[in-house]
């Protein structure tokens, strides 16, 4: 007799399982969680803290806040950041000072760990939110973060 009760119980569990998927089938239009990606670029908004790419913000006078202290270069685990600096005569005070010439950032090697942004004492670099970074030519992934002709914002070193 347990033969028949086994069959009956088995079929009952199968039918309740089918009811779960059946319920999702009926609600499929509302419940579909697919986002149709390339079509929804205008409305797509990432979170504020999303780690896309490291950028150096410049204000309207083309000035940035990077003093060339190299703390980000030391904090980076795999050498993604290279700073090219030079000791030059500062035009305002007349003394020799470390000034940054190029802040090179290899996007292809970056692991998005965030240690450089934590280490920076002047908040010169921050996260941007773009994630579509694929390119056809790998050498364009080596970015120079400070724009040509820009200089240090006054008052940052204090």
């Amino acid at each position: 007799m347990s033969y028949f009760s086994d069959i009956y119980n088995g079929i009952k569990t199968l039918l309740t399982g089918m009811s779960v998927t059946g319920k999702y089938f009926l609600h499929s239009q509302k419940g579909a969680i697919t986002q149709q990606y390339p079509d929804n670029r205008e409305t797509l908004k990432m979170f504020d803290r999303f780690r896309g790419e490291v950028v150096m913000p410049h204000d309207e006078n083309n000035e940035h806040r990077c003093t060339g202290c190299q703390k980000c270069e030391l904090a980076c685990p795999n050498g993604t950041i290279e700073i090219i600096w030079d000791r030059q005569v500062d035009p305002e005070t007349g003394k020799k000072k470390k000034m940054i010439e190029k802040h090179i950032y290899h996007l292809g090697m970056c692991t998005m760990c965030g240690l450089c942004i934590e280490a920076c004492p002047t908040d010169a670099i921050k996260w941007a939110q773009n994630f579509e970074n694929s390119v056809y030519d790998r050498t364009t992934l080596t970015r120079v973060l400070n724009k040509p002709g820009s200089k240090l914002m006054p008052g940052v070193e204090d």
């Binding site: 999702y24 089938f25 499929s28 579909a32 697919t34 149709q36």
Partner: peptide, 10 residues
């Protein structure tokens, strides 16, 4: 299409 609707996608 039926498989997609069961799996909550289009």
């Amino acid at each position: 299409k039926v498989a997609a609707w069961f799996q909550l996608r289009l």
